Amino acid sequence: MVGDGDIRIGTAEREEALAALAEHHAAGRLDANEYEDRRGRATDAVLRRELTALFVDLPEPRPKLRPSRSSALAQPSTSRRPSAQGKVARTLVSLSPFIAIAAFFLTRSWLAFLLIPVIAILARTIDD
């Protein structure tokens, strides 16, 4: 199983780390050389552990790395259950290819397959 430190980061996390490093530099915690070194390492970082290693000896601010999806799934969820409308919408989308095939055989027109995206759009409006 992959640990949180092995999760890949994106541009938003790198930019947040760069902003935090700039604050530490402005506060005098990092001299110019160390700031440039850490800034380069933050820009080149690919994994979370590479970013967190830059802040081990620094107080707040630190980048707020969101928990990984797997660790978020392990924690109890506070989100509400899907609504009945959401279940109907998902069922319609799942059945849309079969509905389109049935309409095709009834009408003998390829236009029946346009029902698939139409049903998906209608289901989206039901779900919202």
Rank of each mutant, 00 (worst) to 15 (best):
A22C: 00
P117A: 01
P76D: 07
D128P: 01
E60G: 07
P82V: 10
G10H: 06
I99K: 04
L95Y: 07
R81Q: 08
L47I: 04
V2S: 14
A19Y: 01
R80T: 13
D57K: 10
P59M: 09
I7R: 06
K87I: 14
R124V: 07
A120R: 14
S96F: 05
L47R: 12
L54H: 02
E36M: 05
P82S: 11
E16I: 00
L30V: 04
R8C: 05
T125C: 09
R14H: 00
G3E: 10
A120K: 14
M1G: 14
T125H: 12
L111S: 12
Q85G: 12
H24A: 03
Q85A: 15
V46Y: 02
P61Y: 02
R38N: 05
T52P: 02
L30M: 04
E13T: 07
L21W: 00
A103D: 10
A12C: 03
V118Q: 09
A72P: 01
R66K: 14
R38L: 04
E34Y: 01
P63R: 02
N33M: 08
R90E: 15
R62T: 10
V93A: 11
S94A: 15
L58Q: 07
L54M: 08
M1R: 09
A102N: 11
A20K: 03
I121D: 09
I121A: 15
L92F: 11
G28N: 07
K64A: 14
D6L: 13
S71P: 00
E13P: 00
Q75L: 12
L95F: 13
G3M: 07
